[in-house]
Design a protein around this nucleic acid. Structure first.
Length: 282
DNA sequence: CACCAGGCAAGCC
DNA sequence: GGCTTGCATGGT
């Protein structure tokens, strides 16, 4: 992939392995919105962006040039060679159709705190409602960010959420998950959970640390590891991935670690594929 | 009305 | 360790 940074406009060429639509709507991130003009509006770490296709190219419109190096280069993992990974994973016969189906998916390297909250909210919930709850969380407790006639809301910091009561949060309709969010925020504020420490740990140790949090079990922890801490080898298993194990691998106890260091990406292809063939549209 | 949704905690064995 | 049940809410 070739990236040209030209002021606040960033042009990405050779985009065979980057489909914004697939990457944003395959169930890994919950805040991207379709713009009326056809592209997408997003915000991460408080930094807004507009993104759209221009022929074969993808264009990012930024509020300031440094936003690319500070946020979006890492978020989209643009230095990662997906073509090589895709070809390696495609050697697995049972993975090949899912990869073909979801070509253009990338694992988005999301903000750690946002990923933690998002996947706490995700438990026993459906994707449209997850999006709704997160959006209400940001609209009510995040900061307003204006950019090119559009209003964005930042994801509220741990410091903000730690000061809320369950009653304060009732407006977002998160149900029993509200107390988990507040507890997680307090754990981050008081240092029990520290992103930088987690990044230093090996994956197993980081998983155990995350699972100390109320409302964080194996699956939520694995999603935080994969999407919030960049651990591409982690293979989260939810109800859909159990169906994958049954239907594609004829084994309810199938272990995704057979896909190796990019098992998390394999998981994302399979998740999107099994949902797609079961009629779940993006 | 029942059942489900990118699960988890608590209680039991 | 494994199995069962309750959990808030909204959609079908």
């Amino acid at each position: 992939m070739n990236v040209i940074v030209n002021g606040t406009e960033v042009i990405i060429e050779n985009t065979e392995d980057f489909s914004p639509e697939l990457a944003f709507e395959c169930g890994q991130a919950f805040r991207w919105k379709k713009a009326s003009s056809g592209g997408y509006l997003g915000i991460a770490k408080g930094v807004p962006v507009k993104i759209h296709n221009r022929g074969e190219k993808i264009v990012l419109n930024l509020a300031s040039q440094e936003d690319y190096d500070n946020v979006w280069k890492e978020y989209f993992d643009l230095a990662c060679n997906y073509e090589n990974i895709r070809k390696t994973l495609s050697k697995s016969e049972k993975l090949a159709p899912a990869i073909e189906y979801g070509k253009g998916i990338r694992i988005l390297k999301q903000d750690f705190w946002e990923a933690l909250c998002s996947f706490i909210i995700s438990q026993c919930n459906n994707i449209p409602r997850i999006k709704g709850i997160i959006e209400k969380l940001c609209e009510n407790f995040g900061d307003v960010v204006e950019f090119e006639e559009e209003t964005f809301f930042s994801f509220p910091s741990p410091n903000i959420i730690a000061k809320l009561t369950e009653e304060d949060l009732s407006i977002i309709r998160a149900g029993y998950r509200a107390k988990y969010l507040i507890n997680a925020a307090k754990a981050v504020v008081n240092g029990e959970i520290d992103e930088n420490c987690l990044r230093q740990m090996d994956t197993e140790k980081a998983r155990k640390a995350l699972m100390q949090l109320q409302g964080v079990g194996r699956k939520v922890a694995d999603c935080v590891l994969l999407y919030g801490l960049g651990r591409m080898e982690v293979y989260p298993v939810d109800v859909w991935m159990k169906r994958v194990a049954q239907q594609f691998f004829d084994d309810s106890g199938f272990d995704g670690s057979v896909f190796g260091e990019y098992a998390g990406l394999a998981q994302q292809y399979l998740f999107h594929y099994i949902r797609g063939i079961n009629g779940k549209t993006l």
